[in-house]
């Protein structure tokens, strides 16, 4: 497979080295029919190592989830062989269905159908708290 020649698709660049498989799983890329390339430990121009994921189709990517897991990623949308959109991620204000609240006193522990929603409480430190009980989440990017 030629991984450089995406015509229409998405390139997730600057993934922290070693995080690509986690992202592959969370974005459920295994369910796609198109080609998906994972490049691990590529040399970054900025120095150091990075992972890259190339998806040979323009799919809907949940940028909030991605930003929560690895805020350093750049998302490039490629159309007709050219990058038409480049987005830098940041920590999302709110994530639903990514972090699970483990507080046994939280309402989410007894009501299974409630979505687990976390809100960014401290951007500098990347602290997220459960909207229901305010329990702190361990941050995935650390």
């Amino acid at each position: 497979m030629t991984i450089d020649s995406i015509i229409n698709g998405i390139v997730l660049d600057h993934i922290s080295a070693g995080k690509s498989m986690e992202i592959y799983d969370i974005l459920e890329l295994s369910k796609l029919d198109c080609s998906v390339a994972i490049i691990k430990n590529a040399v970054s121009k900025k120095g150091g190592r990075k992972d890259i994921i190339k998806i040979d189709s323009i799919i809907d990517v949940n940028l909030d989830v991605l930003g929560y897991i690895d805020p350093g990623i750049t998302v490039n949308i490629v159309k007709d062989g050219k990058i038409v959109k480049k987005s830098h991620l940041e920590l999302p204000d709110r994530v639903a269905g990514v972090i699970k609240c483990n507080n046994p006193r939280c309402i989410t522990s007894t009501e299974q159908e409630l979505p687990h929603v976390f809100q960014l409480a401290d951007r500098e430190k990347g602290v997220y708290r459960c909207v229901y009980c305010e329990a702190k989440a361990g941050h995935g990017a650390s």
Binding site: S109, T110, V131, Y132
Partner: peptide, 22 residues
């Protein structure tokens, strides 16, 4: 349970006062 009144507040279209959640 902590957060139950918040769940109620998002579900009901009338005001909800938290009278203590855990």
């Amino acid at each position: 349970k902590e957060g139950a009144p918040l769940v109620a507040a998002s579900a009901a279209d009338i005001p909800v006062i938290n009278a203590g959640d855990g």
